[in-house]
Write a protein that binds this DNA or RNA. Structure first.
Lengths: 122, 122
DNA sequence: AAATTAAATATGACAAAGCATATCAGACCA
DNA sequence: TGGTCTGATATGCTTTGTCATATTTAATTT
């Protein structure tokens, strides 16, 4: 069996986030090249990120996220569900504006914290 | 005139986030080495990140943030202030638990989008 | 319908930076 | 003085990120 001694972190962005990025780009009618030039990256780079071939640096992802009118926030775990529902609310059918965006945020789904030991108390 | 043709992203993590990371680590009484072994990184790496010498990849930062009982969320810009105050609330003196944590989240403060045209109208 | 043209995305090779291993300098204590 | 524990530094390997090119897809013309 391919028993990875070391999980090597993710290997790619969470799929949910990749879809969110691509969705937000397409929603604006921007091509990869258009987005790339706006944010100061290259089209190749965008392609690699969206297709999951590379995990961008934090600052790179931040640029991308911001150009797409979002932000990356460091949220205490206890607040994550609240924020999530806030986000879900925000793109409810009411707001026709954002109606097209799918569930967008970095969900935990792709990370296996199964082997994680529930760390000590705060 | 030092007219940067290309801003080269950040160059380091926002100082606020670096302080938050280091603060959260120290709050737990962990050394860089201890944190490193817990999260599967190296002490060298942690040092470089906290001191601002390197900008970690997204997945690396995510591991760090999660071990410190936080998460990285992709939030629509319109909701950022709300979430921020939520976070501020959460670590208000009321909660003696988190009383020690400083302002922790990725604030925009350290990014100079001054040269960037703020045209983000959808 | 086939061919041609153009645009959007994906693929390859090189340079830059993250990340790992080993080591070092300082602080603290026995 | 030695020993241990802390964070920082030096050297290589791996991956990101850039430049140039190929492949796919769609629209237009004949």
């Amino acid at each position: 069996m391919t028993k990875h001694i070391r999980p090597l972190r993710l290997g790619a962005l969470p799929e949910g986030m990749r879809r969110a990025l691509r969705g937000a780009r397409e929603k604006r009618g921007w091509t990869q090249r258009e987005l790339a030039s706006r944010v100061g990256l290259t089209q190749t780079h965008i392609s690699g990120i969206e297709s999951g071939k590379i995990v961008p640096r934090y600052d790179t992802l931040l640029e991308l996220v911001r150009i797409l009118d979002h932000d990356l926030l460091m949220v205490p775990r206890a607040l994550v569900p609240v924020v999530q529902s806030l986000i879900r609310d925000h793109m409810q059918p009411d707001h026709k504006d954002d109606g097209e965006e799918r569930a967008l945020y970095a969900d935990d789904a792709d990370n296996e914290e199964s082997s994680e030991e529930p760390r000590d108390e705060v």
